[in-house]
């Protein structure tokens, strides 16, 4: 069984990976780190470089967790991308980072995290970025 961790190169994403790896060790499950860029533009700042990916996997190894990095493209349906991965890998849990956003910001930009919370077919663990990151 597998834990899916939504990862973006932000403090929230780091917090999600931390929580996901802890959860993986606790449950003894495999972790898939999902770094999904938006399809279309030649460059997406959400996509992490190969070096950053290797670094994430190194962190997982140190934590004693069997981890894998996936970078599927998504259109305007990130929850769907997660659902596909859940079906494919037998996902049991999604871990995502939440970020505070004002009401207006949420209305204009929408919130992918919120949609995952609402639409996911498995339990979702949502974490916040620590105010001051102690570890890492």
């Amino acid at each position: 069984m597998t834990i899916l961790v939504g990862y973006l190169p932000t403090p929230e994403g780091e917090a999600a990976v931390d929580a996901g790896l802890r959860e993986g060790r606790l449950r003894g499950e495999r972790v898939i780190i999902v770094n999904s860029p938006r399809r279309g533009a030649p460059v997406d700042e959400r996509k992490i470089s190969d070096a950053a990916g290797t670094e994430l996997l190194r962190r997982a190894r140190e934590a004693g967790v069997d981890a894998e990095l996936r970078q599927p493209l998504h259109d305007d349906d990130l929850p769907g991308t997660f659902e596909e991965l859940i079906r494919e890998c037998g996902g049991t849990l999604i871990v995502i980072g939440l970020r505070h956003r004002s009401l207006v910001g949420k209305f204009i930009l929408g919130s992918e995290a919120q949609r995952i919370l609402m639409e996911a077919s498995v339990p979702v663990l949502s974490v916040k970025a620590p105010a001051v990151r102690a570890e890492l």
Binding site: G40, D75, D76, F107, L109, G110
Partner: peptide, 8 residues
């Protein structure tokens, strides 16, 4: 054609 979300 561009598969943007309703909102955007």
């Amino acid at each position: 054609l561009g598969r943007e979300s309703w909102r955007s």
